[in-house]
Computed example of a mutant assay.
Amino acid sequence: MGWTLSDLPFFDARHRALGERLAALPPPAHPEPRGAEEVARRSRESLRWIAGSGLLDIVVPRADASGARRIDVRALCLVREFFGYHDLLADTMFTMQGIGTAALWLAGTAAQQQRYLDRCRAGESIAALALTEPEAGSDVAALATTARREGDHFVIDGAKTLITNAGIADHYIVIARTGEEPGARGLSAFMLDAGTPGLEVGEPIDLIAPHPLGSLRFDGCRVPADALIGAPGQGFKAAMAVFDIFRPSVGAAGVGVARRALDEALGHVRQRVLFGKPMARLEGVQARIADMATDTETAALAVYRAAWAKDVTGGRCSREASMAKLVGSEAAQRVVDAAVQLFGGRGITKGYMVEQLYREVRGMRIYEGASEVQRMIIARDLLA
């Protein structure tokens, strides 16, 4: 049992080579960490392992001959599918190096890129994006954290919550309201180093599955004016551009989880004897396995179609990205739930992989925009 590259029409030679490279890597899975300190330690260890494997080049792209930095979304999705199959904590650390630097390599100055990107690509610096707030999750336009200009500085006040890598990150990209216009058009993006006076990290937030998560508070937090990423009022645009890139990869991680759950279920029903014969010979079990496999492959097609579209066009692919995130995360939930059902009591017993997957998969339908938000984006695009 192990992850292998699917034979899909959206890959070229470099993606197949990446798939072979990933399949040859030793599985990164470790015993599930317990407690915030162990989660933080494992997160750092995972990032060092990923950096040593050379995979961070995919999410922190180098400049090409023209000076542009472009991400290969199909490669991003392949790596996330691999980590989804083996270790979702490693998937988190891999992905956040991209999400926590994307605004920089999309719109940052040369000085900002030089200061942060190489260290993040080497795994020497941990990145984070501070977007979600206590009263503003999917409704980005309702963000209340402010950044007011005072001479050569901006002063940031407010609070963020459910921030991945809070407390272990070396820097944060903070989305705050600068007020050029009402709503989403009045948001800007800033670089903020950990340890900046006025930045307070709250207690870790304990989820149903291990995740380095916490809250942040800004109390008169002063950053130099050159910490602004891009133009004032472009923070929402930058965040949406990041989601266009990374939302399909959430679906890819879901495909990896689904493949692992399916493999676990196949192994179980082949060995388990029920009513005097192997479970695999029961028609009801066969039907469940067929549905799981079909769900998984359908999700893979949606994910890699969206990734291919983004790579080929280079433009906005919000509808395709939302479809990939929606289909991939929802399919993963169904496939894992089916695996738990096939395992019976063992499926909800600590120590079994499907029990761990059941806890880990649930967040995929919420983070980076809940499934309801993805449906809204898809419908609005179709009705526009």
Rank of each mutant, 00 (worst) to 15 (best):
D244W: 04
R148P: 01
I173A: 02
C77E: 04
A128R: 03
A130K: 02
T92I: 15
I229M: 08
G195D: 05
E37I: 01
I245R: 09
R288I: 14
G123K: 02
Y352S: 03
I208V: 13
G230H: 11
R319M: 14
R346L: 15
R281P: 00
L228W: 04
A144L: 01
V79I: 10
V373P: 00
T145Y: 05
A258S: 07
L216N: 09
I377N: 06
S66K: 14
R270S: 14
N165D: 05
L131C: 07
E203C: 02
R115C: 05
E372P: 00
I175V: 15
V250C: 10
D244E: 14
G84L: 12
E38T: 05
T109Y: 07
R69P: 01
S329D: 05
A309F: 05
P248G: 09
R41K: 12
I156L: 15
G328E: 10
L187K: 04
A13K: 09
W3G: 02
F11P: 00
P61W: 10
R281Q: 14
Q356K: 04
L104W: 12
H86N: 15
L129I: 12
F83L: 15
A169F: 07
V255A: 06
R305P: 00
D295I: 01
E283G: 08
I58G: 00
R222T: 10
V257M: 12
A24S: 12
G347Q: 09
W308R: 12
G137A: 04
S318E: 13
I245E: 02
G151D: 10
R305G: 08
